[in-house]
C-alpha cells in the first residue's frame, strides 16, 4: 500500500507539492518511487530557470526505467536538491522528505487549487 500524506497536493503524473508561502516544494510520490524501483540517477534543472506547468523538469532513472518529472505549477526554479544527485536512493527511502527534487516560486496561485487533493490522489492510485 502506497503512502499518501494528508498535507500535500498531487498530480496525475505522481508528483507531490508542498506549498510553503509562494514556494512549491516538489517531489515524486511513494507510489511513483515504488513503481520505478531503485532510483539510480537524477538530472535536476538549473536554478533560476523559468518553467511552465507541464514542462519536463527532472529526469529520474531507475534500474528499470527512465521517467520525466513535470512541473506541477508554473514559476521559477529557486532551489534544487543537489544532495540526491549523489544519493538518488533517498527518493526510494524517503520520497516525501529527503527525496524532494525542486522548489518552484509560484507565479500563479490558482494552479495550486487545480492540483489533486490527497483523497483524490489516493483514489487515482487505487488505494482509497
Amino acid at each position: 500500500m502506497s503512502n499518501v500524506l494528508p498535507n500535500l497536493r498531487y498530480t496525475e503524473q505522481h508528483e507531490w507539492v508542498k506549498v510553503e508561502g509562494d514556494v512549491a516544494l516538489v517531489g515524486i510520490t511513494d507510489f511513483a518511487q515504488n513503481a520505478l524501483g531503485d532510483v539510480t540517477f537524477v538530472e535536476l534543472p538549473a536554478v533560476d530557470q523559468q518553467v511552465q506547468k507541464g514542462d519536463d523538469i527532472v529526469v529520474v532513472e531507475s534500474t528499470k526505467a527512465a521517467s520525466d518529472v513535470y512541473a506541477p505549477v508554473s514559476g521559477k526554479i529557486v532551489e534544487v536538491n543537489t544532495a540526491i544527485e549523489d544519493e538518488p536512493e533517498a527518493i526510494n527511502a524517503d520520497p516525501f522528505n529527503r527525496g524532494w527534487l525542486v522548489k518552484i516560486q509560484i507565479s500563479d496561485q490558482s494552479e495550486i487549487e487545480a492540483l489533486m487533493s490527497p483523497e483524490a490522489y489516493a483514489k487515482h492510485i487505487g488505494s482509497d
Partner: peptide, 9 residues
C-alpha cells in the same frame, strides 16, 4: 522473478 525487494539490495 525480476526482483523481490529491490534490484540494488
Amino acid at each position: 522473478p525480476v526482483q523481490y525487494g529491490g534490484i540494488i539490495a
